[in-house]
Design a protein around this nucleic acid. Structure first.
Lengths: 145, 145
DNA sequence: TGTAATTTGAAATCCAATTTCAACAAAGGG
DNA sequence: CCCTTTGTTGAAATTGGATTTCAAATTACA
């Protein structure tokens, strides 16, 4: 798999878009950033070192990442769109801690297959799905006693 | 299971709230209504016969239904909160047609169990989950050829 | 380097959810 | 039945994230 940065730059070129310092900074921050940042998370994190980068630019750039395939947007129902860096690996779903918000990816081919079966039983063609398991992570379980 | 209307009235009494004509009308419309209406769906449907009932009242009343357990709110990611009449039956998830928006409920104990397993594998305590399968329903498959 | 096209950031807009507030309507006591 | 208290209602305002607008600034490339 090509470097993420390269994929993004190629995408820009191909679309007649431009490689700018803001895009470079945001890409860098996104790739270094923890998992599943929302636009706001990234904006706030960037603001420390780059107070001149606006929210709209972060928003638009994340959308570009999503368009070119180096990121994917997710909606975990907390009112914010989140972005994850794609790995090129299998499809996966998420396990989310209700206490601290930690997000763990999981994949289970058996569940995937059962979904196919459910769709078929109802005469549906399966196109996509959304599956989140909410719980309490090991750390928070410990704290809660 | 007691009548939904009775449960709601008992809840109002118990909470020192009042049984009003609007609440009666909205309850009736909700119970007759098709599956999974959003606040707006119900508001628009009601407006025909009861143009004097405001959106805010529908919104607040649906929330009361949810509080007293005769309805449950759902977020299918289409930007609107939807409400389903509870049946007292098993937990279920949803199969949604991407073309026409039809919503079909399904339940699969095998998937439920695998979720437990996934949570356990990651050291999580499972609290809840959200699972939607998006596809194309039989009718829309036919139309699409 | 000149020019056309894109980008940027601040502010405005959008849209559903939610709250505010003054007028109105139940419920219970006298 | 009237009064008072408290909850209810609907219109309008507010909230909050997503998205767009627009004038100024920047980039790509001839």
């Amino acid at each position: 798999m090509r470097e993420k940065a390269q994929i993004f730059r190629d995408y820009l070129t191909e679309q007649g878009l431009k490689w700018t310092s803001q895009r470079e900074i945001i890409l860098d921050a996104f790739l270094r950033c923890g998992s599943h940042p929302s636009t706001e998370d990234l904006y706030l994190k960037l603001r420390k070192k780059h107070p001149n980068i606006g929210y709209a630019t972060v928003y638009r750039t994340l959308k570009l990442f999503s368009e070119c395939g180096i990121a994917a947007s997710r909606d975990f129902g907390d009112g914010q769109t989140r972005y994850e860096s794609t790995t090129g690996a299998e499809h996966h779903d998420h396990l989310i801690c209700k206490d601290c918000g930690a997000i763990v990816e999981f994949e289970d081919p058996r569940i995937e297959q059962l979904q196919e079966e459910v769709a078929r039983q109802h005469g549906f063609i399966l196109l996509s799905h959304r599956h989140e398991i909410f719980g309490r992570c090991p750390l928070c379980r410990e704290k809660a006693g």
